[in-house]
């Protein structure tokens, strides 16, 4: 598992850019392939650490779930919530067609 490491080539950059919905230019793809490989190479330093007995730590102070009473309270008006939308129609966000046909 920990030995499974890969440099990042342009193909991987394209794949990852697709996952995070980023359109990259050809120049950016090459730049990121080189820079991300550099950074990942550096990160591989972590393989020097034996972490077989170490639990992951996602946050420094482990807070249990926080609940409040399930009571209705005021919230933004629809017009306020939509005020910053780049496009809207009626009381909705407007986007290009999502479903084909």
């Amino acid at each position: 598992m920990a030995g499974e490491r890969a440099g990042i080539d342009v193909g991987t950059v394209r794949y990852v850019a697709g996952l995070c919905r980023l359109e990259l230019t050809g120049d950016e793809e090459e730049l990121f392939a080189a820079q991300l490989s550099d950074i990942l190479n550096y990160i591989d330093k972590l393989n020097e650490l034996d972490t077989s007995e170490v639990e992951p730590l996602a946050q420094a102070i482990e807070i249990p779930n926080v609940f409040r009473d399930d009571a209705p309270r005021g919230s933004l008006e629809v017009s306020e919530a939509l005020a910053n939308a780049p496009e809207k129609t009626g009381g909705f966000y407007k986007v290009p067609a999502v479903l084909e046909g």
Binding site: A2, I43, L46, L49, T51, V54, E55, P56, L57
Partner: peptide, 14 residues
């Protein structure tokens, strides 16, 4: 995910 993300979280605990 395991090789990078979880490894990072374990290093964080250390």
């Amino acid at each position: 995910y395991d090789a990078y993300y979880l490894k990072g979280l374990k290093a964080r605990r250390l």
